[in-house]
Nucleic acid binder design. Structure first.
Lengths: 170, 170
DNA sequence: ATTGCTGCAAAACCTTTGCAAATGT
DNA sequence: ACATTTGCAAAGGTTTTGCAGCAAT
């Protein structure tokens, strides 16, 4: 079993300290989300936390199937249902974001704690965060104009990332 | 088997129509969308146009199943597949908008020709348009900051409409 | 006559559910 | 011991696909 030290994992290339902090923060938030909901610290959950921490570090977006494959590759014998149930809980706990791709399918992503939205490459499905948004006042105003009490919002921007542009428009 | 990202290109831009008679305009745009893609003016399509014109008038959001049920009630003998294929084409042609509800499911909606976004009631799933948005310059800037060429975006606001608020919290 | 659409049914896809067995506390 | 979670398999719901027949041009 792995001993969780605070030392850094080997990083393939230099990643900003901010990124590492975010990943560490993510681990804490993932663990909290699980422990808030229930007691048992089970093997599948430890593996999940480990995997999600890795995904938090790289910022990769993944499908439920990606995650399932990754988990069983790392540890075999993990049920699909467990993955679905965990993802559901973690989305609920605001640890994961559900991102809608341009084709209508979904990916998940370990999200930083603060307000942000997503920029999605329509070719490679890479997802990147950004912070720009309308002001809270603007949203209230939109609600007021139509008789709604605004609770939440989602802004997703679609485009092509420079990697894909370079590697031939296709 | 993997879910290969299907090459689904989004069509360029929407036509600025801004007409007040949105329903009539919608009929024209629906017909154009069909005729642009193919020649045959078939019975199912005429029924579809009729039904969609009605939905444009009421501004109602509908699921694929809603539409299928509505069509067969109105005319019987319409295949599910035909409905799916038509919706796909019409979304492609920017005649229909795909709206994501707060639970992740989708509804469709005949959209006005001009730029707009959606305000969704999380209780009754009513959908309303609004025009507020970030400026085009802002989107370009977001893209530039992350090395993306921005093509499109989607802003969805979730809340509770006053009807639902009045009729008890639930 | 040719071309492309349509309905049907089957297949594929993705997600949820039921339950016995395993696991953590 | 007890409560909860897990894995499995089956079910559920939705969307896609293959194809023979049909309709429009």
């Amino acid at each position: 079993m792995k001993n969780e030290s605070r030392s850094r994992f080997r990083s393939p290339r230099q990643i900003s300290a901010e990124g590492d902090n975010q990943a560490l923060d993510a681990v804490r938030r993932i663990e909290n989300a699980f422990f808030d909901l229930s007691r048992p610290n089970t093997a599948p959950r430890r593996i999940l936390v480990e995997k999600l921490a890795e995904l938090a570090r790289t910022g990769e977006a993944f499908s439920t199937d990606d995650l399932w494959q990754g988990l069983r590759a790392a540890h075999g014998r993990i049920g699909r249902a467990t993955v679905f149930r965990s993802i559901e809980q973690l989305v609920e706990s605001k640890v994961l974001d559900r991102v809608e791709l341009s084709d209508g399918s979904h990916r998940y992503r370990v999200c930083g704690g603060s307000h942000h939205h997503h920029l999605v490459c329509t070719m490679c499905n890479r997802v990147v965060d950004f912070r720009e948004c309308l002001s809270a006042r603007k949203f209230e105003e939109i609600g007021r104009q139509h008789g709604f009490t605004v609770k939440d919002h989602k802004l997703t921007v679609y485009g092509t990332c420079d990697r894909c542009l370079k590697s031939g428009g296709k």
